[in-house]
Design a protein around this nucleic acid. Structure first.
Lengths: 153, 153
DNA sequence: GTCGGTGCAAATCGTTTGCAGAGCC
DNA sequence: GGCTCTGCAAACGATTTGCACCGAC
């Protein structure tokens, strides 16, 4: 639960002139406490449990706002589905996605910096960010795979 | 123009029992000759010019088929739009996308292999593929940016 | 009290599907 | 000639928008 980070975001919203309404506070807190990388639908359903009045349009609008102020970060996976996670400062990581069950794990190793200058030189681009996703099979699915053996996963 | 690669794909389709119909041949050839990384809409519009009868549903169905047989590869960018490129053998590359004009450049440097084993060890995943995208500004947009200076791009 | 934010429902967009006719093998 | 493939139009699902009311400041 990233309370301090959530409080910071509330102050940020407020200082930018955005009102601290109930739906905004609920979504913000929900994201501070959630584990995993929920989609809009999952966020909506997760919040409905404790706050039955919320509308999905508000979830879309609020998540966009939270991405805009830098509180959240959007993740685009190969199946073309958007998912969201906290955009904590100094938390540079990437994602490893299981092609069988879809589970997402994070990893921190990243040696992109060692090649980024070379790429800038050869392409004349100024690079600001990068995304790295690896796809494969998690240990659970690997053992199932070994079990059924002939399955083509 | 990758004629040989296109011919190979035609034989592959045929050998798998798929009929070589006019729309399939046209789309296949279009992709062999196109530069850049077109979206479905762009492929559809590009083909309409010379073949006004084609329907967009056919473009969707055919592109899916061509991805399935490995002739094409799908690209998911941060704006959540699918784009397609030839999946040439031994052509491992990644993409560099300009955040201002959207132009996509390819680069070949990639040192992922040097960390992939370590990631496999720490996560117990078996990694099969990876995607790397870098975002920044191309030289054209950089010089425009310098010109207007105060623009926040 | 004001004005931005919300929930609802309708609109919209990209994509998929059902189907009758067309055309490849 | 048979059966797959196509184009059309309708269906679908995710997202966005218009609007009247609500509530934070």
């Amino acid at each position: 639960m990233n309370n301090a980070y959530a409080e910071e975001a509330k102050m940020m919203l407020s200082s930018k002139g955005y009102k601290l309404t109930r739906p905004r506070l609920v979504i913000l807190d929900y994201m501070a406490g959630v584990s995993g990388h929920p989609s809009i639908q999952e966020i909506y359903e997760g919040i409905l449990i404790n706050y039955s009045g919320i509308g999905i349009a508000t979830v879309y609008r609020t998540i966009d706002l939270l991405v805009e102020i830098g509180y959240l970060r959007a993740l685009v996976l190969l199946n073309n589905q958007l998912r969201y996670e906290l955009n904590l400062p100094d938390d540079h990581h990437h994602h490893l996605i299981c092609k069988a069950c879809g589970v997402i794990r994070e990893f921190n190793s990243c040696n992109f910096n060692s090649i980024s200058e070379e790429i800038e030189d050869t392409t004349c681009f100024k690079i600001e960010e990068h995304n790295l996703e690896a796809y494969g099979y998690c240990s659970d699915c690997l053992s199932k795979k070994a079990g059924y053996s002939t399955e083509n996963m």
